[in-house]
Simulated scan of single mutants.
Amino acid sequence: MCLQSGGFPILKNSQRFPSLLDAKILRGLPPATQAEFVDSCSLRVFKRSSIILHQGEPTDRMYLIAEGRVEVSYVSEAGHHSIIYHAMPGQILGTVETLSERPCAGTCTALSNTTLLFCRRPELLEKMQSPIVLRNFAADLHDVLRHDNRYKSVDQFFSAEQKICAYLEKLSDIRGVFSESQGYLADVVGCSRQTVNKELGRLRETGIIEMTKFGIEIRDTEALRSRLSELDRSRSQSSSSCA
């Protein structure tokens, strides 16, 4: 631990964010190596929402989320804006682009009150010499592919009500709170605010969610998933009746 000029201690990254030692990219490494990895990264704090990676532009650094959330979005050639997901603490961003020296596949926006660690390309290449880190990076890519495949199916086959339930869980933070507006949720799902309000009303009446000053709080995650399954069964029965 170092001291500032006034005698106050300066905590290392691993001391300030001990939960990062359990990040996927560090799994299987000796504790001392995990701490060294985290401590070697630089730190940035975002009090307001700020873009950290721009779609179509190069980057030379990998980000590791310490606190807060990062919105990952994509704009199609036709100009359609899609919110892909919210990255949470412990997740990494920009790794593929940094290693491949290819432009960013999407835009990453650090939401307000988010803290990020980052390391530049030379340091990242050095860290990737470890077979364990390389394996963890490949595992992270695999998780991203599974996630993308699942939500491509959600977007293509789910009803608006099902999408609301799915994205409500997906975009909530580690406390189970969705802190964005209902209009934001409507944009993600691709439906009207009236449809969102109607489904949220049902979820609130059954005690699955609660409206708080912090946002929409999921009180019962299992019940939310059951609601999603119930909607799926109802939709399947309707399709069978029509057939």
Rank of each mutant, 00 (worst) to 15 (best):
L20D: 05
L125V: 11
D155S: 11
R225G: 09
H147V: 01
L99M: 12
P18T: 01
E126C: 07
R175C: 08
S73V: 04
D60G: 14
D22N: 15
Y184D: 11
D22G: 07
S14F: 00
I84L: 15
Y85R: 14
I92F: 06
T114E: 08
E222M: 06
Y184K: 10
L11W: 12
A166P: 03
L145W: 08
G106E: 08
T59H: 03
R233T: 07
V72M: 13
Q15L: 14
A110K: 03
S82V: 09
L117R: 06
C119T: 10
T98P: 02
G215T: 12
D22K: 13
D232K: 03
G106Q: 11
E230A: 13
R120V: 00
C41N: 04
C191R: 06
P18Q: 00
D232V: 00
A110Y: 05
Y74D: 08
C165A: 15
E230M: 09
V38Q: 06
L200A: 10
T98L: 01
I25M: 07
E57V: 06
I218R: 05
L185F: 11
L228N: 08
S100E: 08
E199M: 06
R27D: 03
L93Y: 06
R44P: 02
M128L: 12
E199A: 01
V196T: 03
L29K: 00
T195I: 10
N136D: 11
K163Y: 04
V133K: 11
S49Y: 02
V154Y: 11
C104E: 11
V144A: 10
S241K: 12
G207T: 12
H142Y: 09
P30W: 03
L171W: 08
G56C: 04
S100Y: 01
G6V: 08
T195N: 09
E67H: 15
V133E: 09
Q162W: 02
I92Q: 08
F37V: 01
L185Y: 09
G106K: 10
I218V: 15
K170T: 14
S5C: 11
F214S: 15
I65L: 12
S159C: 03
Q34R: 15
S130R: 08
G56L: 04
S14E: 01
H80M: 07
C108T: 06
P58G: 10
R48Q: 00
D22Q: 15
P18V: 01
P58E: 14
R235W: 01
C2T: 03
N149R: 14
R48E: 08
L203E: 02
L141D: 00
S238N: 12
L203Y: 05
G56Q: 05
N13I: 11
G7Y: 14
C119L: 13
P122M: 07
L117G: 03
Q182P: 01
E180H: 15
R102Y: 00
C104S: 13
S82K: 12
Q162G: 10
S226V: 02
T115Q: 04
A78K: 14
H81M: 00
G201K: 06
D140A: 12
K198N: 02
Y63C: 03
I10N: 04
R219Q: 14
Q156L: 14
R120Q: 03
A32L: 13
S229L: 10
H54S: 05
S82H: 13
S240K: 06
V70M: 05
A23I: 12
N136K: 09
E77A: 12
D173Y: 02
H86C: 07
S100K: 06
A243V: 13
